[in-house]
Write a protein that binds this DNA or RNA. Sequence first.
DNA 1: AAAGTATTTAGACATTTGCCTAAATATATA
DNA 2: TATATATTTAGGCAAATGTCTAAATACTTT
Lengths: 94, 94
Amino acid sequence: MNLLFKALGDPTRRQIIDLLRKRDMNAGEIADYFSISKPSISHHLDLLKQANVVLSIKEGQFITYSLNTTVFDEMVKWVIDISDKQTKKARSKK
Amino acid sequence: MNLLFKALGDPTRRQIIDLLRKRDMNAGEIADYFSISKPSISHHLDLLKQANVVLSIKEGQFITYSLNTTVFDEMVKWVIDISDKQTKKARSKK
DNA sequence: AAAGTATTTAGACATTTGCCTAAATATATA
DNA sequence: TATATATTTAGGCAAATGTCTAAATACTTT
């Protein structure tokens, strides 16, 4: 979960996620959306991969990246849980 | 949203959130749960406050911290949105 | 096989982060 | 008013992060 939050804590990486939401893309296509170097994008993609937010498959010369939204499940559960406890606390106060 | 993800990207800060889920606490009480120094905890609390995850009110000599779960709403919306687009994509593929 | 294209790895550098101790501020109590 | 308690602010330091350029790797095309 720490890797996930760390991964989401950078605007470039969240933009990459937003891009992949629309369609799968290869590293070069993704890089074209940004003004930072390809190695930097590659590094961001690596962190997203480590956090399990994206999956990659090699297709010949290209590497196609896609979103893996299942990792968000645990995160949402965590958040819901917090909000839930809070709701209970608020209710019992009244 | 960046401050929020940054705030959540540290285990100590997530533990603080977990503590405040059960009840409001003052800075000293929170610090007692950790083996790091009080100034460090104070710093973590400041970041959580900047991210709007916690609220603080001064009560005499003490400062009581409480959770503000409303900030998670936007985050959950963002995540749901991503998962939703993905679901649609998956459906249309089939 | 050589040259071109796509991507990553390596290594350097500045900035940010998380931690610490010492000092400052604010309130409470003797 | 002097002292104790609660918390933050200041300043320093090592490690992590985000960026870059140059070089390496892998595949494709001529």
